[in-house]
């Protein structure tokens, strides 16, 4: 039993990680998101998304953008920016991404499945 343990453990780990495609992922920057971004560029929104999935995610889960209103997101970002040492541009990009993603309706399901 123990002799097989390395293979069992490695196999279990691979199986778990192979299911990674079902993880909760913040929506990627899209043309629809740009239309509601109040002038923010795609680069700015992408920078905000990267901040969300690296700086924020290093301490806690990534919450769905729909979990809070834009006003509440603004409060949260301001509160957390000091703790995570985000500079003004990073803070602005993060808030721009959260606001734009919140205002963007999720894509319709593909009828082809």
């Amino acid at each position: 039993m123990v002799g097989h343990f390395p293979r069992l453990l490695a196999g279990a780990a691979l199986a778990v990680f192979a299911s990674g495609c079902v993880g909760t992922v913040p929506p990627p920057v899209s043309p629809a998101m740009l239309r509601v971004s109040r002038g923010a560029t795609a680069q700015t929104l992408e920078a905000g998304r990267i901040t969300l999935t690296t700086r924020c995610a290093s301490c806690h889960r990534v919450y769905p953008v729909a979990a809070y209103s834009p006003a509440r997101w603004a409060e949260i970002v301001e509160e957390m920016a000091e703790r995570t040492k985000l500079d003004a541009s990073q803070q602005a990009a993060l808030l721009a991404y959260l606001t734009a993603a919140h205002a963007t309706p999720p894509p319709a399901p593909n009828p082809a499945g």
Binding site: A13, V16, F17, S19, G20, V22, G23, T24, A57, R61, V62
Partner: peptide
């Protein structure tokens, strides 16, 4: 190091 985040759940290997 391998890791996957599923919302509130984190898996590492």
């Amino acid at each position: 190091l391998l890791q996957k985040n599923f919302g509130p759940v984190t898996l590492v290997y």
